[in-house]
Design a protein around this nucleic acid. Structure first.
Lengths: 339, 339
DNA sequence: GTTAGCACTCTACTCATTTGAGTGCTAACT
DNA sequence: AGTTAGCACTCAAATGAGTAGAGTGCTAAC
C-alpha cells in the first residue's frame, strides 16, 4: 500500500514531534505545530488509518499517537532522506585520533567519547581486531643482563611487546639467531596457523636455546589469544539517564547492566555488522535482545590500515534522532577510516 | 570526651544497621536486633546524648537516627578494628592480571572490574604513571623497505612502539647507528630532562639523518606527553543505581556524570593519595567536592615494578561497608603490588 | 539510673475526586 | 466524497483529605 502525500506529512510530523518531545502526539498538537492545512478532525481520521496500517500506536484510548517500529523503519529507509540535515558535521578529529593510533585501547576510548559527546547517546566502540592477522616481524632485544624484550609486529603495524627475565645471561648475537629462526618460521603465518606442529618444528631447530624458547612461545600464544578476544569500550552511559524512557529506575538499571557487561553488546554488533560496510540501523525488537527491545542501535564498521576492523555504534531509545546520528557517523567514519 | 561502653555498643548497632538497611534506626529496632540489655527508653536517652555529641542525626523528629560523618570517621579510625571480618578474601587473581601486564589499559580495566564485582561499589583505577620515568632503551628496527619500528623502553618494562614510514630507504645498519646515538644521549635520562637543548645536541650528532630524525623525536616527545597524562577507568557504575540514596534520578545522573568525567575523580585521588601507601578512607564532605559529599571514597596506591604508580579506589554511599571493603582492598593490593 | 506510659510529630500510604488532553462518532457543510 | 464542528466519552495524572504507624521526648514511678 502506498501512502498518499498527506499521510506521509502527518506521519513525519508525529515522528518528528515524538523524537523531540517523547510524548504521544495528538491531533491538536499537529495542527498547532505543523502546517498540514486541515482540521484536527481530519488528522484524527488519518491517524486512525495510519494506526490500521501498523504505523502508529496508542498507549491508551485517551492519549495521542506514538510511532511504531514499522514507522521508524519506514522513516529510516525512505522518509528521512528527503529531509535537510540540521546539525553541523563533526569537526576534524583526525589529529586527536592519530595521536592515539599506537594504542588501540586509547583510540577506541577517544572515539567512543567523541561519539557520545556529539550524539548525546551512549557510544560503543569495539577494539580493532582481525581474523586473518599474520605475523610480520619478530625481534628479540637484550635490554640488560638478563632482561629480554620480545617485539612482535602483527599485520602492518600492530606491535606487541613483552619483557621477560631470561634465567641465563644471553648475548644479543644469540638473540638475533633465535629471532632469525622465529622469523623464518612464523613470518606471514596467520595467527591461527601457529599450531603445535609448527611450534615443535621451531623447538627442534632451536634445541640449544630451549630454556629461553618457552617464554617466547608463551608470549606469542598469549598474544594470539589476546588479539582474537573481542572487547569494547562504552562511553556516555550517563546520557541514557537523560531520556524519559529510562526514568523508571528498574529500566535504567537493566540498561546500565547491559552496557557494562560487554557480551550482549558484542553479540548484537557481531551478528549484524560483520559483513556490510554500510551504516546499519536496528530498531527495537530487531536487535533480538529483550534488554534493548526499546532501543535502537546504529552501527558502522571501521578499519585501520586495511587490516584491523572494529565497530562504532551508538545506542539510544527507539525514539532517536536517526537522521542526525546517521549523518554524524557518516562523517566520523570517513575520518576514522582515513587515519 | 570518652564514650562509655554502652554508648559505643549502641553507636555500633546503629552504624551496622544503617549500613545494612539504609533506613534510620529507631530505639525499638536496636532492642529487637541487637543485644544491648536495656529498654528502648534508655536507648532513646543514649541516642539523644550521642546526637548532642554530633555522632547521630535525625532526618526529622519522628524518625530514627542516622550516623553522622563524625560517627563514620570514628568507626573507621577506631571502632571497626575490633570487629571480625566476615567476607572471604579475594581469590588469587595474579594469574589473570599477569596476563595483562604488558598492556596497562587492559590491566587497569581488569582490576577495576574485579574490584567492582567484589565490592558492589563503583571502582576507579588510574593508569600507572611515574614522575621520574627514565628512558631505558631505544631501538629502531627496519621491518620492511620503508617502515621503521621505534621501540622505546621506559623504566624497567614499559614499552612504547611506533611504526612510521621513512621517506627514504634505510638499512638496518644505519638504524643501528642512529639507535646508538639516541641511546647514548637519552638512556637514564628522565623524561622531563629531554629538552630542546638535548634534542638539538642529538640533531647535530645525527646531522646526516636529519630527515628521519624528526619523526623519531616526535614519537619520543608524544610518549612523554602520554605518560605524564593521567587517566583512569571506571567500572561498576551500575552498582551505584542499586543504592537507595541514588533512587532520586537527579542524584543518580549527577553521580554518573561525575564518574564519566574523570577530571574530578583524578583531582580527588591525587589530592589525597599521592604521599601515603596506606589505604585512605575519605568520608562525605571530606572529599571536598559537592558532587560526592554524600559518598565515601576508599583508595590505595599500587605500584608496578617499583617504578610506576597508580591508584585503586572505590566509591559508594557514605553508608558503606567500610570494614569489608578495606579488608578486600588490603588483600587485593598485596596481589597487585606483587605482580 | 532505668523504664513504662503517653501525648505528640511527621512521613508515607490509600483512596476518592477532579482535571484535562485526546479520542471516536455523528451530522452538517462544501 | 471529503472535511469539519460538536459532543459524549475515556483514561492517566494530579490533587487533596484522611489514616496508619513508626518513632520521639517527657514525666512520673520503680
Amino acid at each position: 500500500m502506498v501512502l498518499d502525500d498527506r499521510k506521509v506529512k502527518i506521519l513525519m510530523a508525529i515522528i518528528d514531534d515524538y523524537i523531540k518531545n517523547a510524548e504521544p502526539v495528538g491531533s491538536g498538537t499537529i495542527v498547532k505545530r505543523y502546517d498540514i492545512g486541515v482540521s484536527p478532525a481530519t488528522i484524527r481520521n488519518e491517524m486512525a488509518n495510519l494506526e490500521e496500517l501498523g504505523l502508529l500506536l496508542q498507549p491508551h484510548t485517551s492519549a495521542g499517537r506514538v510511532p511504531s517500529e514499522k514507522a521508524y523503519r519506514l522513516y529510516v529507509n525512505e522518509l528521512m532522506k528527503k529531509k535537510q540535515v540540521g546539525k553541523a558535521p563533526i569537526s576534524n578529529i583526525q589529529d586527536i585520533l592519530r595521536a592515539k593510533i599506537d594504542n588501540p585501547d586509547e583510540l577506541i576510548r577517544e572515539i567512543a567519547r567523541i561519539v557520545s559527546k556529539n550524539t548525546l547517546y551512549a557510544a560503543i566502540v569495539t577494539k580493532p581486531h582481525s581474523e586473518k592477522s599474520t605475523i610480520k616481524y619478530i625481534q628479540l632485544i637484550n635490554i640488560d643482563e638478563n632482561s629480554v624484550l620480545l617485539v612482535l609486529v602483527i599485520n602492518k603495524d600492530i606491535v606487541k611487546n613483552h619483557i621477560f627475565k631470561a634465567n641465563i645471561v644471553i648475548t644479543q648475537e644469540k638473540l638475533d639467531q633465535i629471532s632469525k629462526v622465529l622469523n623464518k618460521n612464523f613470518i606471514n603465518h596467520s595467527l591461527k596457523d601457529i599450531n603445535i606442529e609448527l611450534i615443535h618444528r621451531v623447538g627442534v631447530e632451536l634445541v640449544d636455546y630451549r630454556n629461553i624458547l618457552a617464554p617466547i612461545l608463551d608470549v606469542i600464544a598469549n598474544t594470539i589469544k589476546g588479539i582474537d578476544k573481542q572487547d569494547c569500550y562504552v562511553a556516555g552511559m550517563k546520557n541514557i539517564l537523560d531520556f524519559p524512557e529510562f526514568n523508571d529506575l528498574e529500566k535504567a538499571r537493566d540498561m546500565m547492566k547491559f552496557l557494562e557487561e560487554s557480551e550482549g553488546i558484542l553479540k548484537i554488533l557481531n551478528m549484524y555488522q560483520s559483513d556490510s560496510d554500510k551504516i546499519m540501523v536496528r530498531i527495537g525488537s530487531e536487535n533480538g535482545f529483550s534488554q534493548v527491545d526499546k532501543c535502537s542501535i546504529i552501527s558502522v564498521k571501521y578499519n585501520i590500515n586495511d587490516s584491523m576492523y572494529g565497530t562504532i555504534a551508538i545506542i539510544g531509545p527507539t525514539r532517536m534522532d536517526y537522521l542526525n546520528t546517521v549523518t554524524l557517523l557518516n562523517g566520523l567514519i570517513k575520518q576514522v577510516n582515513g587515519l
